[in-house]
Computed example of a mutant assay.
Amino acid sequence: MKMNQDLKEQIIQYAKKIGIDKIGFTSADPFLELKEILIRHRELGYESGFEEKDLDKRTNPKLSLENAKSIIAIAIAYPSKIVSPPKSTKGEYRGFVSRSAWGLDYHLILHEKLNLLGRYLKELVPSAEYVVMSDTGVLSDHAVAERAGIGWIGKNSLLISPEFGSYVYLGEMVTNISFPEDQPMENQCGDCTRCINACPTQAIVSPYQVNGKQCLSYITQRKDMLEEHWMEKLGNRIYGCDTCQIVCPKNKGINSMHHELTRPNPELAKPLLKPLLTISNKEFKQTWGKTSAAWRGKKTLQRNAIIGLAHFKDESSLPLLKEILEKDKRPMIRQTTAWAIGKIRGQQAKEILESVKFKEKEEKVLAEINKSLKRLANQDIADSPNKK
């Protein structure tokens, strides 16, 4: 056992050397309690659809590595604030990207660190086997990190660490080497319910249970046309949502800027909305390609940018939106644009919708145009002075 304790200490020291902020060790035993939670989660229809479908794979590490004995969990902190953030001005409105997507794609960061750790383990123990994963892997990063003593799971289902709050990227390495286990940390949320109260869509349906389909972070990543009530809630979010993290007392005053690759490019963290609508595929790949916000593609971010312009009621964007409504080949984008023009309101908006009405062939887009025109007509009646 002492040999394994010494090996563990060597791994911990190497992890610090390569820039891993927290590391914890746990067994590769199945996550039995988690499985019961996931079964219930599925029965209630709370899965977003991004999760691994096989609940056994999600809760049994030995299905990822047959001889698994331990899991090494890691955390890397990321920033929560932008130095001198750019501001929205009239006609030059900006969107907002979730903090977790500000720097280089965290999958790349985590996998580099985990593979360095794995290679170091094999140097020390040539017979070592390992599998690395994060976010897109089959195991629950939060459950692994909690059991490995990195932090506790908050009522918003995010992992909270004492040092870095919930602003941490999580990953793990399943290995056939047995390590002494770290102890889980006591939950420190107490009776606080700020995240539950602040959630814009009430997606945190109860402490530690989130309806994935209702979470704005998920909604910003959907590829289809959004329902109107979600567009109303979206505001100027381009990718992700940080509301439950912003209000969390455990995140107060935390801004981890010590990793260069996680630092934000202010123009991508708070991008101008109108230029997003005309960006070419090549420009998008060059500008956004190395961020985690790019994984859902240009179209999804453009749809959200259109919704953002509607949120600001940006009349200066109407000529551009008119061009999109007339020429864009993507029905979902045209449909969203028709909704946005109606939300911006005004005579110009009405004229644009009327001019396109008889040219549009797509049924859903035409229905949205007519819906916006009807809304504008009702608003005109509501805004006109009462006549006796």
Rank of each mutant, 00 (worst) to 15 (best):
E47F: 15
E368W: 00
P331M: 00
Q202H: 13
I150A: 00
L273T: 12
T175S: 08
E368V: 03
V247C: 05
Q5K: 14
L63G: 14
T201Y: 09
Y46P: 15
L63C: 15
K22R: 15
Q302M: 08
K250L: 04
G240L: 00
H107E: 07
E47R: 02
A73Q: 01
Q245M: 13
I238R: 05
L65Q: 09
E227M: 08
T89N: 05
G19M: 04
R330Q: 11
L65V: 12
R303H: 06
I333M: 06
Y106R: 03
F358K: 05
E260R: 10
N386M: 09
A294R: 10
Y106P: 08
Y169S: 01
T278E: 04
E43N: 15
E123K: 13
K285S: 11
I324L: 04
A294W: 03
V168F: 01
T89R: 11
R194M: 08
K270H: 09
K270P: 13
E326Q: 10
C192K: 04
N281S: 14
K361P: 02
S134W: 04
L7D: 03
R194G: 12
S157L: 02
P85W: 01
G212I: 00
V144L: 01
H311I: 08
L63N: 08
M1V: 03
I196H: 02
Q245L: 13
R58H: 12
N281G: 12
W152V: 00
K282P: 09
R303T: 13
E146C: 07
E326V: 05
Q13S: 11
L261Q: 15
K357M: 03
Q13N: 06
L55F: 14
N4Y: 10
D380F: 14
N236P: 10
K329R: 06
G95I: 07
I246F: 00
